[in-house]
Design a protein around this nucleic acid. Structure first.
Lengths: 198, 198, 198, 198
DNA sequence: AGATAAGCGAGACGGTACGTCACGTCTTTGT
DNA sequence: ACAAAGACGTGACGTACCGTCTCGCTTATCT
């Protein structure tokens, strides 16, 4: 009898209600889009989900943790590796996808979560672990392929390179400054790939 | 009788106390560094400054507006134009300066203000008007000189180019990911100037 | 300029709102009669009085303290000294009055307050100080007059004597056992005055 | 096949665990003395007794019912009839016993139960049925013997007479006013027996 | 000089959300 | 079928901060 069996063997007591959990997450998702992270209250989540504040506080430390979960749950597997054969193509498609996400309904939610992360280290950690890391992984793969193919300069630090793609995007989102459309994505990738100097 | 006269002519009633104003701003500055934007309360500002809540609310709409004022007041005449003679040099010095600011005591305050701006459009506006625009102006000058000198590619959109410098910096500040030291600044400028492709 | 003047001189700050205080007390009075001490909630008091929970908690430690105040406020000068000329007459009138009070609308409220006092020493203290002591004072005067007149036995402890009048009344109230009408009052006074032995 | 048989015949399923029942009662007794009726929670009873909340709620409607049971279970066969030969002697011994009970560890528990009875009619009923009635029965016997012997006045209502003994005692317990020692018991009985008038 | 008009510190107020606690019910597994 | 374990909805609690509102006092200009 393995440890896994023991872990999976049902513990005594009523198990956590999956229905309640998902109702909370769903209600939170809706509220995030409708009124935003800050205006949303725990009581509203409870009311809309049919659950209770006590239950929410039993499983999440506060509404921000619920919001992070809800935000992740509405982002499916996401951020697929484009793998077009060229680094420029990969970066372009990937960045267009990111801009599309930023301008979509979840964009503001994401911006607010990043904003909240400036005050709440736990939100920052969860965001980093759950989202930023997995997204960067795709770009790392793109980068590595480009270097292997000889398209990209091996003497540039990979993290720096990725920041050149990702940084301007987040900057535009957070400062509401500059377009977030396909043309902008293309222009950024082009400039990054070719550099600024003649 | 000009409008200026009317504005300057002493109106009846006790004039606004400059001492009170500056005490509020100073107290807010301290609190921002000590406990942060969110934890700071209007009551604390009043207590520490020796003023009263009513006075604060008379001159600022809420604590975030006070915080923006306090933040601006503690930033010196801001970001001088390096003008070293080369765009790479200018960008490098400028970005090192920004990183230094980000890692200094005001860095976290700035990050929190940007975070708060995600929820409060007025904070966003004030931040954009008072800080981001003036800072970008320097970079625009650097860019224009570089293009004139023939160092930089004229076919790149200026805003895109500036975002390549500024974006990665904000990204690293807001996600607490990646170093913010001189070496990082140099690496970013180098990569941006020369581009990623071989 | 006396100390009293200094004490009465208005202290800085907005003075406590008498209107708010009395609205809270009045609302509490109503709720005590309508739904009882235990069922009444602070939120109901706030809603009905148009005040806020914060204000209530600022001036009273909890709803029970408000209830004590409300209970006292609805009992006017109360318990007058009958002074009929005979101790028996005084005791009779006084006890009839008490029974009348117990069977009136405030009777249940009083019983509940005494009940609550078993759990909350502050309620017990306030009740003792504000009510029980002032009432006993009347009976003490009645007793003393009776002893002076030679009607009553001087060798009986005054507190014991008063307890013989007051004790059975409270007993009947708290145990809902035995009548609380004029006949009962008369019977008790008669038995107490004349004693049980032949 | 008699009714008793049917009742005793093992019904299907696991029978109620006597061990569980007594553990609950014992735990409740301890908690009543340690922290009091109000502070005690059902969860604490469950934890200390090793039972579960569901089991407790299966057999008792709420914690007050458990408390009543626990209180009764810790009171021995209760208040024996002194039968000293004289009514004064009987009353004295009986009242000393009551005072001793009131000042003992169970005194506060009893006071709290009477307090709770002001809010909960079921507690009131159980208390009246299980305790007050049986105790008064002893005093009724004492009274009847005294009347038969010619010691006591037959023209006094028996209930009134008993209230004169019992009332002052409860009054002193519930208002924490006046001593509850042997001397006080003697003084009360003496005054009641002889009456207040000369 | 007196009237008038603000500014100001102190602090009470109504409002709203917070996070906690106990209640009594329900749903599992184990015996 | 009963019991322990423990999750759940309900609803009150007491706290904290917000932004507004009196107060009484002070400081200025205007008549």
């Amino acid at each position: 009898m393995s440890v896994e069996d023991t872990a999976q063997r049902a513990r005594p007591g009523r198990p956590r209600s999956e229905q309640s959990r998902s109702a909370v997450v769903r209600a939170t998702s809706e509220l995030l889009h409708e009124i935003g992270l800050r205006a949303m209250t725990t009581e509203q989540i409870a009311a809309r989900s049919g659950s209770s504040k006590a239950t929410i506080y039993k499983w999440w430390p506060n509404k921000y943790a619920v919001a992070v979960d809800a935000f992740f749950s509405e982002m499916q597997a996401d951020s697929p590796d484009p793998d077009t054969g060229s680094a420029r193509g990969d970066f372009t498609i990937w960045l267009r996808g990111l801009f599309h996400f930023y301008t979509g309904p979840s964009g503001r939610v994401f911006a607010q979560l990043v904003g909240e992360a400036q005050f709440d280290p736990e939100v920052a950690d969860e965001l980093r672990d759950g989202l930023i890391r997995t997204r960067r992984a795709v770009l790392e793969a793109v980068w590595d392929r480009g270097v292997e193919r000889g398209e990209l300069r091996a003497d540039v630090d990979r993290d720096v390179a990725i920041d050149l793609i990702v940084g301007p995007a987040l900057y535009r989102l957070m400062t509401s400054r500059g377009a977030l459309d396909d043309a902008a994505a293309d222009a950024i990738v082009d400039a990054v790939i070719r550099g600024l100097s003649r």
